[in-house]
Design a protein around this nucleic acid. Structure first.
Lengths: 332, 332
DNA sequence: TTGAAAGCGCTAACAC
DNA sequence: GTGTTAGCGCTTTCAA
């Protein structure tokens, strides 16, 4: 910037004014400065500008997720980007690599970079560590899962009621032997879905044998293995509720490997690519992750604009999509 | 930091030394400073530090892609994150939203934020605009597609030879009516794959009628529609080469909707979830996008460490995975 | 309408 | 070992 000023024969401040399109610079100087800037390939240093600018905003936010390569999270990122780019805000993305302990580290790294705000899909058991950060000015929003040990804006799906509703459909078809296969039980989403499952089963006074409940599944392979075991047991379930996209895919594999895809009913949580092309199509509770990302970003920016705003919890409704697998009746 | 110094009763520089774990501070002061820092929830301002630090590095890189919610690109991002996080570098992610004109804007936005380097999957027709940026110090690496109008480190797949090889397999099975369905033809990847297709066809002296070549497909829906049309024509192809993951999925839909999935052969470029569970399984040329992302990030950091390093082009081999659809012979 | 001086939070270079 | 001074690239404040 100094060089531009020298070349244009004006002061630093004048260049600054032109670059930031502040009013009150004569047309002639504007042209001279712009020409000099172009000639020198001048690119203003936003980080330096933000250092001095009031409010200390960096026009940067962070998004911390479990794994961007999971399509669910990738869509959330996409939604966040979408609203951030409109505001000229750049997005740091980070995946936790299944390593919950990294969560705090990454949050601190972003905090050191002075992101204006941070959107977190909580993975660690507890987010109490955020209280300090938030007190010293870090603005947070939470996505997919409510945080524990700290309050804030949250955008989640109606996990419990949507699951209850889906399981009810299985019960209405006559199923009584319904298995629940879920993810890491320490996560609120997994817990809510399990609770929804229990809600439906209890409301219909259907017993849930312990071996019909499998939890803490983390990968497609684990899901496939344990569901295969389930289906080969003495009293196999007649229907499966698979509580997450990776688990649903594992179930799809297991059922097809055993040739049971037309005998055993399945409803999954989370939609996935090609679910409708399989035969039978896989019925799912579909979330709208891109919208969830958008809403979380909007909540973050709203709080950035008004710190005193009361914390909001947005529940994004999901949709039960029937494609066949969830409509298979139990054997007579 | 000033407050920490005051509270600990030491100078600014001493706090700086402690925070950065520089040697030569007495144990007693280290403790005093750390205690003060903890008490004040002190978080060093990395952007300010980087402003002053030699080399002006910000420990930040940018990744500009077509669309993070495409699993191919999401995996690239994951690979980039993986090597960046090891070095304490944060990653800005941005999707172009099919809007090529945004490419330059986003690059400039990242450049203003003084990212140390930028990894770009070129989408615009031409990257000549980067020459200026690179001259003024922006370090670039390119991923998935070679740039045009500018040189640099590139990490790509063996698009042409892998396609040729796959199409050769179809020809060896006896197919002569082979259709090519590809993406935006202005992109080098799409062009290379098309060239590979032609290589194989010409080597076998098989004619390619104009209506067996469909290009510039952008979405699953477009692919499904045009492939449906192709299959319902007077002289439908007996085999399809679908040159991209979204197109392959569109073909899967079209073939199953018409009940032709066991009659018409298909090989796709890019693997996709559940390709092996379909019946028949979909044979694909599988790339390793996460590895591609890792290698691109490594190339970037290598150049960051040694600007004089000659530009490298890394071709990551892909793998033809046979699952059934590509092994269907032509009708007698 | 323009510019000079001060300073954002931190570190490099050099004292002490 | 510890502190002082200057300054990264920019914006704010205030004076001309």
């Amino acid at each position: 910037m100094r060089e531009v000023a020298a070349l244009a024969g004006v002061s630093l401040k004048t260049v600054s004014r032109v670059v930031n399109r502040e009013p009150g610079v004569s047309a002639e100087l504007v042209i001279r400065v712009e020409r000099a800037a172009a000639q020198l390939d001048f690119r203003p240093n936003l980080t330096a500008a933000n250092l001095r600018r009031s409010g200390q905003r960096t026009a940067t936010i962070g998004l911390v997720l479990e794994d961007v390569s999971n399509p669910f999270f990738a869509s959330i990122l996409r939604g966040v980007e979408e609203v951030a780019v409109q505001r000229g805000v750049a997005v740091f993305a980070a995946s936790l690599d299944e390593d919950q302990s990294q969560e705090q580290q990454i949050v601190e790294a972003f905090s050191s970079r002075r992101v204006d705000g941070l959107i977190l899909a909580p993975t660690a058991l507890e987010q109490g560590y955020l209280a300090n950060e938030m007190r010293s000015g870090l603005v947070m929003a939470f996505v997919d899962r409510a945080p524990r040990g700290v309050a804030g804006d949250v955008v989640v799906t109606d996990n419990r009621s949507a699951t209850q509703n889906a399981v009810q459909q299985l019960i209405a078809l006559g199923h009584r032997r319904i298995a629940f296969v879920g993810g890491v039980s320490a996560l609120p989403t997994a817990e809510d879905r399990y609770d929804g499952f229990l809600d439906a089963m209890m409301a219909a006074q259907v017993k849930v044998p312990a071996d019909y409940v499998v939890r803490d599944i983390r990968t497609v392979d684990q899901a496939e293995i344990s569901i295969t075991g389930l289906l080969q047991g003495a009293q196999p379930p007649t229907a499966l509720f698979t509580a997450q996209n990776l688990i649903s895919m594992g179930a799809v594999r297991a059922l097809r490997a055993l040739g049971l895809e037309k005998e055993v009913a399945q409803i999954g949580f989370d939609d996935f690519e090609l679910a409708d092309v399989l035969n039978p199509g896989v019925s799912v509770v579909a979330q709208d992750p891109r919208r969830i990302g958008r809403l979380a970003a909007e909540a973050l920016f709203a709080r950035l604009a008004d710190a005193a705003r009361p914390a909001t919890t947005t529940v994004v409704p999901s949709e039960l999509i029937t494609r066949g697998s969830g409509e298979i009746p139990p054997p007579l």
